[in-house]
Design a protein around this nucleic acid. Structure first.
Length: 440
DNA sequence: TCTGGGGTCCTAGGACCC
DNA sequence: TCTGGGGTCCTAGGACCC
């Protein structure tokens, strides 16, 4: 049996921890570049603001309805997430941190009233971290997700479900009839793994509610759709098909992609941006002790500026051997960039991805090196370590960009491509300079 | 004027092998 | 004149997630 604990409107709730005055305000947190709304308070949702709504389209609500917007502050969210997760872990014996605001907990074999226990954890997270959350409990991860959806909806929209399911919903504790009513009242699109496309197809086939999907023929699910949907149906029926991943597997690819604050034209600026992105991916990769065999670089114009000439290309650069060295990664990314760059376009976005990752201790030597290998078995990769280690430590201690590759260009301020973040709150919990001030 | 970022998994089809 | 069967690996694209 699993519980899914999910912070409500997570980013918005994080901001409210240090700005209690925003408690009842319609509030949104914006994506990078202050582009679109990626987290909305209940009050903002009530104004009809959709997930991902572009800021310029909802900006008028600032004047008319007192809408407040803030730039995303991921350092703050990450830190509050850590605090929340460590409290939530107390719910059971094994925990999977599924995303910044969600975690699954294995609650099988836990004695006592699991619903009461969930309410207690919820209260503790609210009091100690300041984040409201909801808990869903079910026999499988898909059912726990569904229960969580019910708990959240019951809290936010009275009348859709009985009040008793608000905040904590324990599906396995329901009677068959209670469960039937809940599943029948829930749209199939609320199911984990059923997105826009598949729910449209399901509805066209007369499958509208979660109850319908649960009773769907397994063979049909597999042949007409895929094993993924079949698995979902089985999970809804109570057969666990998706295990708890309590050890986080290493990433198989690592990316850093950004939209620019303003369109850029010059190759030199793209080179600076790509250098920075490549350096960030390499640093992330070293953190999980992997090496990459391929580097992908892409650049593109903005598909939203329909009047501009459009251009979008990517290229994959294979590396001679797997590496985690920033210099090699940057070099490859820049080589790729010069290969795909075309003058005359207004570029809106670029990115670097590291592909084909493997553990850092694997070494594949190319054939022509065999001789030297026999003589000297110490490898290049090992010799390089101290420099990258020092670079990571300096950047961690004194801030990102303290030590960087020269092609990243001059420091900060003048970067024309830097992203816009007009309303960022301080790093209240992760930076000494940003500690909130308490007045007597 | 202004539209995010970072991932995973599955499938179909082609290339290739014996 | 007649031309099989079975399998793997890779890639691009689709769908989904938060």
């Amino acid at each position: 049996m699993y519980a899914l604990v999910d912070g409500n409107n997570f980013y918005v709730s994080c901001e409210r921890v240090f700005r209690p005055s925003l408690q009842n305000a319609p509030l949104v947190v914006l994506s990078n570049n202050d582009g679109c709304a990626i987290s909305r308070s209940n009050e903002a949702k009530a104004l009809g603001i959709a997930m991902g709504a572009p800021w310029f389209k909802i900006k008028e609500l600032e004047e008319t309805h007192g809408l407040v917007s803030l730039s995303a502050n991921f350092a703050l969210y990450g830190d509050l997430s850590d605090r929340m997760m460590s409290l939530v872990a107390g719910l059971g014996h094994r925990q999977e941190i599924y995303s910044i605001d969600e975690s699954f907990v294995d609650v099988s074999g836990i004695r006592g009233d699991i619903t009461q226990r969930a309410f207690k954890i919820r209260a503790r997270v609210l009091q100690w971290v300041g984040i409201p959350c909801c808990v869903g409990i079910g026999a499988t991860k898909t059912l726990a997700k569904l229960a969580n959806h019910i708990a959240k909806t019951a809290e936010r929209k009275p009348g859709v479900y009985p009040d008793c399911y608000a905040q904590v919903c324990h599906l396995s504790a329901c009677t068959v009839e209670e469960k039937r009513v809940l599943l029948q009242a829930t749209n199939v699109s609320a199911v984990w793994g059923v997105g826009r496309r598949i729910s449209a197809q399901l509805r066209a086939g007369g499958i509208d509610t979660v109850l319908d999907l649960m009773h769907m023929d397994l063979t049909l699910a597999r042949t007409r759709w895929s094993v993924v949907l079949e698995r979902t149906v089985r999970e809804l029926q109570g057969t666990p098909c998706i295990d708890l991943e309590d050890v986080t597997p290493n990433k198989k690819e690592i990316a850093c992609t950004r939209s620019f604050g303003e369109p850029i034209v010059a190759l030199s600026h793209l080179q600076q941006a790509v250098t920075e992105f490549a350096s960030l991916t390499a640093e992330k990769m070293r953190r999980q002790h992997s090496c990459a065999l391929q580097v992908l670089c892409f650049i593109r114009t903005s598909p939203f500026r329909v009047k501009d000439a459009q251009y979008s290309r990517s290229v994959v650069i294979p590396l001679m051997r797997a590496t985690d060295d920033t210099r090699a990664i940057v070099q490859a990314a820049l080589a790729g960039l010069s290969h795909i760059y075309q003058a005359g376009f207004k570029y809106a976005k670029a990115g670097v991805m590291l592909l084909d990752l493997q553990p850092a201790h694997w070494h594949q030597h190319e054939l022509q090196w065999m001789d030297s290998m026999l003589i000297d078995s110490s490898t290049d990769a090992i010799k390089k370590q101290p420099l990258m280690l020092a670079m990571d430590q300096l950047n961690r201690r004194y801030g990102r960009g303290t030590l960087q590759i020269a092609s990243a260009g001059e420091q900060a301020a003048t970067k024309p491509w830097a992203m816009k973040q007009g309303r960022r709150t301080p790093d209240y919990t992760t930076s000494w300079d940003a500690l909130p001030l308490a007045r007597a």
